[in-house]
């Protein structure tokens, strides 16, 4: 026990390996957020269209992704796609797919909420000057709704980042998984490695999420003051 535990963070390539793992999580979050937000805006706009069948389907889609815990969603896709549909994706691709679909579901609700809170007269004014449906969304409703969507979208981002910690359950080599490997490999030399490694990962997640949630809160406050 001549070693102080904190050195486990910097021994060998441990630190850069952990950051590498964090990058995998970040990459999955970014891909999922980009695809999910785009799809979510489309689905959210469709949910404001007056078509009962379409609305019901999209509502069921949202409720499914809301009710089933994300861990379970990951397992559903991870086990069922290859077994029953013969689709063999690697774990990272499964994670991106699940997260993108989940983000799209949550995003559709944010977009719908923002769209229906644009004042009715804006919509009527748009129709009165002869805009058609897509033009109405493109030039009148979406630009005004974007401001309302931003705080909730940033909060969704922090949720996605936090949820990437679950990736180790489908054996993605994320920061938590690599952290566990380092703890196991250094069990002899650094028996208290878990404290430092998990402590570092804890701080890393905090450093990623805190600025985003602080930003979201500031935007929300500004909107409340303007209201």
């Amino acid at each position: 026990m001549a070693h102080s535990g904190i050195n486990v963070l910097f021994a060998g390539q441990n630190f850069s390996r952990l950051l590498g793992g964090l990058w995998i999580s970040a990459k999955i979050s970014i891909v999922a957020l980009v695809i999910g937000i785009l799809l979510g805006v489309l689905l959210g706009a469709l949910r404001t269209v007056k078509n009962p069948l379409l609305r019901t389907i999209l509502r069921l889609y949202l409720e499914f992704f809301r009710i089933v815990p994300t861990v379970v969603l990951l397992f559903l896709f991870y086990y069922i796609l290859p077994k029953n549909f013969n689709v063999n994706l690697n774990a990272q691709a499964v994670a991106m797919l699940v997260f993108a679909l989940w983000v799209a579901a949550e995003m559709s609700d944010i977009v719908r909420g923002a769209l229906i809170s644009v004042p009715q007269h804006q919509k009527e004014a748009g129709l009165a000057i002869g805009l058609n449906g897509p033009q109405l969304y493109r030039y009148v409703l979406l630009p005004q709704a974007v401001g309302l969507m931003i705080p909730a979208t940033i909060n969704l981002m922090t949720r996605v980042i936090k949820t990437t910690s679950l990736l180790l359950l489908i054996s993605v080599m994320d920061v938590v998984n690599i952290g566990q490997q380092i703890i196991e490999a250094n069990r002899q030399q650094y028996p208290d490695g878990a404290f430092w490694i998990y402590g570092l990962i804890f701080i890393l997640y905090f450093l990623l999420c805190y600025p985003l949630s602080a930003w979201a809160r500031r935007l929300e406050q500004r909107q409340n003051n303007n209201a």
Partner: peptide, 23 residues
């Protein structure tokens, strides 16, 4: 509030369950 909201439950659990015994 900030620490709890901005870190994932999984890491919180790992910390409580695996790191606390070491101290």
């Amino acid at each position: 509030t900030e620490v709890s909201r901005n870190t994932p439950l999984l890491i919180q659990l790992f910390f409580i369950y695996y790191a606390f015994p070491e101290i």
